[in-house]
């Protein structure tokens, strides 16, 4: 299986009120294509920091991140953004939907970074809205949606550009079990289609159904199973 994400000796520290805090400390692992990886650990252990560093949104102090063979942090900010648009999808716990755009337009925002032709993006959006059962809600604003619908909209947006990697930060944190299960189904489906998924979660249940579990504690990778 092809390795899609490779993390080598990744380290990141922040200055806090009590001094230096190691958010990531010498982290190394890989995620293969078709693999769903769950990152677990207590709050503040560095899970989100790891996700942001892999996505190229946070500059590490040392170490390297490769996505599909490309070293993320050797790229300029704009080249990295372009690479991210083409290869990485993000899902957040807070959904981060644009409040003044409809469901359909929120999904289409993923195409902003690609400068893709409107036609394929529009076609892909329609397919995703149908897949996530959001056709009836396509013209609704996020404020008019249920939390489950919001997260499905965010998932549709993350998948529009057919990324190689999906990075999800507590994607089910605000959802009821039924909606949470739908999200997990979607993530597993994405992995089974050959994509790589890295999910940060507190939820122990899905860990049993994934291919890899990473346990972090105080910025250190304490287990990889």
């Amino acid at each position: 299986m092809k390795t899609i994400v490779r993390v080598e000796k990744l380290a990141k520290a922040f200055r806090g009120p009590t001094g230096k805090v190691n958010a990531l400390d010498d982290i190394s692992f890989t995620v293969d294509a078709g693999q769903l990886t769950v990152v677990q650990g207590p709050s503040g252990c560095g899970k989100t920091t790891l996700l942001l560093a892999i996505g190229g949104l946070l500059e590490p102090d040392s170490g390297r991140v490769f996505v599909d063979g490309q070293e993320m942090h050797s790229l300029s900010a704009d080249a990295r953004a372009r690479f991210r648009a083409d290869n990485i999808g993000f899902v957040f716990q807070q959904f981060h939907l644009v409040p003044y755009l409809s469901v359909r337009e929120n999904v289409l925002t993923a195409a902003l970074g690609r400068i893709a032709e409107p036609e394929p993006a529009a076609k892909g959006t329609n397919e995703l809205l149908a897949r996530f059962g959001l056709q009836e809600r396509a013209r609704h604003l996020p404020a008019e949606l249920s939390t489950g619908e919001r997260q499905r909209t965010a998932l549709a947006r993350a998948l529009l550009n057919r990324p190689k990697v999906l990075l999800a930060d507590e994607p089910t944190g605000n959802l009821d079990p039924e909606n949470a299960e739908k999200v997990w189904d979607c993530l597993r489906s994405f992995a089974s289609d050959g994509g790589s998924v890295l999910v940060v979660t507190h939820d122990p249940t899905p860990a049993r159904k994934c291919q890899q579990v990473l346990r972090l504690d105080q910025g250190r990778l304490i287990a990889c199973a």
Partner: peptide, 16 residues
């Protein structure tokens, strides 16, 4: 701020 951060996460470039 959150909107801008999201756009960056989606690969929207600085000039955009």
């Amino acid at each position: 701020r959150a909107e801008v951060a999201l756009f960056r996460a989606l690969g929207v470039r600085s000039w955009q």
